[in-house]
């Protein structure tokens, strides 16, 4: 039984890491603009699909991954430039609806470009299982966890220590004030979309070798990442990461120990319970309205 639990935890952490990366992408854009970007899952899908397309076209492996990240970053920039920015006077809710539209558009575009097939992508370093204690993982699981840790630390450093990162945070606190002290609000928004698109793309590249990809692969991952962000507290990057890991482990333990049929239901019930007792999420700040 103990051996099994080790395996469930290993699985949960690996799956949770991908949720964490998607959730982190949600948190970055939310941080900068208060908008929940529902096209985040599509960034994940586009990252994987672009890499698969480039590999099929004969681009060498590491280069294909880098170019894929670049392509998705550009998509993130254009989403901001051509869909979000023209509507800058719009309310947050209207902007969220724009991102839902963008996600449908990106899914449709992927369907037209790559068709409705499911694609596989070669793993970063082979498929030979590795035994860690009582658990067995494939090298890709370790890549997922490792790169997630590195990215999370980098993002944390960026927002906490660099002027640029702090400027983005300033925009989320008060756009007008940030503009008045000389922060280029437009540029900061553009950066945050590019950054979260790039992180989404990395998540897609990490997960494609173990879970494949298709034009509609982003929807479910987006939903899980969104749940992770909500669970951790919207707007808290580290909260989203913790939320993702908790969600992954809960799903895995639920599937293994109780019943695989109620796996998703249990995870969502726990999220509801958390939100009931702590509406701002595990690590979110209490929002205070000044009257």
């Amino acid at each position: 039984m103990f051996d099994q639990i080790i395996q469930f935890l290993a699985t949960g952490l690996s799956v949770g890491s991908t949720y964490a990366l998607v959730g982190l992408g949600f948190a970055i854009i939310y941080n900068a603009s208060g908008v929940v970007n529902f096209a985040q899952g599509e960034f994940v899908m586009l990252g994987a699909m672009s890499a698969v397309g480039l590999l099929a076209a004969g681009v060498p492996y590491p280069l294909a991954l880098l170019v894929a990240i670049l392509i998705v970053t550009l998509v993130g920039f254009s989403l901001n430039k051509f869909a979000i920015e023209p509507a800058r006077g719009a309310s947050v809710v209207a902007t969220i609806i724009i991102t839902i539209g963008a996600s449908i558009f990106l899914r449709g575009a992927a369907l037209l470009i790559w068709g409705k097939d499911i694609f596989s992508m070669p793993a970063f370093s082979g498929n030979e299982p590795i035994e860690i204690g009582a658990a067995t993982v494939v090298p890709q699981n370790i890549w997922i966890m490792g790169i997630t840790v590195v990215l999370v630390l980098l993002v944390r450093y960026f927002f906490d220590k660099t002027l640029y990162g702090k400027a983005i945070l300033a925009c989320s606190c008060n756009k007008t004030a940030a503009g008045l002290v000389g922060i280029n609000v437009k540029l900061m928004l553009l950066t945050s979309y590019g950054l979260s698109a790039a992180i989404g793309a990395v998540a897609g590249l990490l997960i494609a070798p173990i879970a494949f990809t298709s034009f509609d692969a982003g929807t479910m991952l987006g939903l899980k990442g969104f749940s992770a962000a909500i669970l951790g507290g919207m707007g808290s990057g580290m909260g989203a990461v913790a939320g993702g890991l908790v969600l992954g482990v809960l799903e895995s333990l639920g599937a293994g120990l109780i019943s695989s049929g109620y796996k998703d239901a249990m995870a969502f019930v726990i999220i509801l319970a958390v939100l009931f007792f702590k509406p701002s999420g595990l690590f979110g700040f209490k929002s205070v309205d000044r009257v």
């Binding site: 099994q4 395996q7 469930f8 699985t11 949960g12 690996s14 799956v15 991908t18 067995t136 997960i207 173990i210 879970a211 692969a217 929807t219 479910m220 991952l221 799903e251 895995s252 333990l253 599937a255 293994g256 695989s260 049929g261 796996k263 998703d264």
Partner: peptide, 20 residues
């Protein structure tokens, strides 16, 4: 008697149970 979601990305938890 295990199940998984059609969009799930990992089924090792279910298979660990089967292994046991």
């Amino acid at each position: 008697d295990e199940s998984y979601g059609t969009k799930d990305t990992d089924m090792t938890a279910q298979i660990t149970t089967i292994r046991a």
